[in-house]
Amino acid sequence: MTLQPIDPVSDSRVEHRNSSLNGHNYHYLYGEPAGGQYKATVFLIHGWPDCGSAGWRYQIPLLLEMGFRVVVPDMMGYGGTDAPEVPPNDISLYSYKQAADDIAELAKVIGAQHIILGGHDWGGMIVYRTAQWHPELITHVFVVCTPYSPPSKEYISSEDLVSKVLPQFGYQLHLASGDVEKHVNDEQSIRQFFRAMFGGRTPSGEVAFDPNKGILFDKLPHVGESKIMNGKILEHYVREYSRHGIHGPVNWYRTRKVNWEHDQALLDKKKIEIPLLFIQANNDSVLTPEMSKGMEKFIPNLIRGEVEATHWALTQVPDKVNAIVANWLGKQNLGNRSSL
């Protein structure tokens, strides 16, 4: 099914809305199927460095066509949503628990008693934890790229994680260090940052982002066009990031300790019993296929799908991702329940 992606600036299929959630303003896209009747409500949660509505631009039309109400928030620190500075604010504002509580509050605002959650990148971890913090709210979950990581009694620092287990997470240490805010701080550097993150290369074929090291500032000014992040959509990302700068988005990489602290209340809720679809991007250099081994132990109703794509599967192979999501949702016996 080939559908025209949502224009995140102006599109008749969706509305731009703002709501105060637990004391902070959130911007989100809101859409209903033609006629206003919908079988269920789907929230789509983005990760880094996407902006909510734009990151899911190819999936929103599919879900509307299938008869779902769709809600796509910019998460804390992104786009039109508040981006509290840390300090003086507490880093917990960027935690999974805060995100889960804000999602639950947004469901109340729009009158949804139950929701389906879709997540990508950080959004994947957010939807897993939202299903654990608010199990009465979530009926189904689908995640692209992000493997499930259960709550752990033992704390492993980001430094130990990188040095002992996942060296390809080295970029997370760089993003948390404060260096990125110093170098990516105006429209042009933000533009080059996005070209680098989405696969652009220098004239000599070099990359400016290395998963093990982070952003390569010496290469950044020379990065050319990205095949999947260019033109109008690139300029949209640049404008959105220029609102608050990059500080809010990189704060998500400073939350490992606070997330672990919150997780201690979930140690007896490691299993997610609801139907869950996980789509692996086989060429993801960070969230590699090996990382998803054993998910069935914690997710008994797990269905797997896979696509030949990098981490940017949502926009790189949208038809393939959409086909897997549509097939799975079509088997979930979701009726026409416009109160959900």
Score class of each variant (00 low, 15 high):
91 I>P: 04
64 L>M: 01
157 S>Y: 00
131 A>V: 10
118 G>C: 09
301 N>W: 01
103 I>Y: 12
204 S>C: 10
247 H>R: 15
13 R>S: 04
61 P>N: 03
194 F>P: 05
30 Y>D: 13
252 W>A: 06
116 I>L: 03
124 G>Y: 02
28 Y>L: 12
215 I>C: 06
96 Y>V: 00
286 V>C: 10
223 V>D: 03
74 D>E: 03
5 P>Q: 04
47 G>M: 13
14 V>Q: 04
297 K>E: 12
187 E>H: 11
331 K>W: 07
81 T>R: 06
319 D>I: 02
103 I>A: 04
308 E>I: 15
303 I>E: 15
284 D>V: 02
250 V>T: 15
58 Y>T: 11
30 Y>H: 14
330 G>L: 00
138 I>W: 12
251 N>I: 04
168 Q>V: 14
146 T>D: 03
92 S>N: 14
313 A>P: 11
195 R>N: 13
220 L>Q: 03
233 I>R: 05
231 G>E: 09
239 R>G: 05
236 H>M: 09
97 K>C: 07
215 I>Y: 10
210 D>R: 14
1 M>A: 13
137 L>A: 08
176 A>T: 01
51 C>S: 15
44 L>P: 07
93 L>T: 08
69 R>K: 14
234 L>Y: 06
283 N>D: 14
140 H>E: 07
25 N>L: 13
121 D>P: 05
317 V>E: 08
135 P>Y: 08
310 T>W: 05
103 I>E: 06
126 I>Q: 13
246 I>T: 04
209 F>P: 09
83 A>N: 05
51 C>N: 15
157 S>F: 00
206 E>T: 14
65 E>P: 02
126 I>K: 11
140 H>S: 01
54 A>I: 12
219 K>R: 15
315 T>F: 09
53 S>R: 10
135 P>T: 08
256 R>G: 02
104 A>N: 15
194 F>R: 03
142 F>I: 06
53 S>G: 15
52 G>K: 10
273 E>I: 10
61 P>Q: 04
262 H>V: 02
105 E>F: 12
274 I>K: 12
306 E>C: 06
67 G>E: 01
312 W>T: 09
51 C>W: 12
165 V>R: 15
182 K>H: 05
89 N>V: 08
83 A>V: 04
205 G>R: 07
86 V>S: 13
16 H>F: 08
193 F>G: 05
244 H>I: 02
23 G>T: 07
35 G>P: 09
240 E>N: 07
88 P>K: 04
172 Q>H: 08
117 L>M: 08
97 K>S: 08
2 T>Y: 08
7 D>S: 07
198 F>K: 09
296 E>T: 02
145 C>P: 02
264 Q>W: 00
244 H>W: 13
335 G>F: 13
37 Q>I: 13
279 I>Q: 00
300 P>K: 05
44 L>W: 10
169 F>I: 06
17 R>K: 15
152 S>N: 12
15 E>R: 11
191 R>Y: 09
3 L>G: 04
129 R>K: 14
11 D>A: 09
174 H>S: 07
174 H>M: 14
201 R>H: 13
305 G>S: 01
125 M>H: 15
183 H>N: 14
177 S>C: 09
47 G>Y: 10
275 P>K: 03
64 L>R: 05
222 H>I: 00
288 T>R: 12
6 I>Q: 03
279 I>G: 03
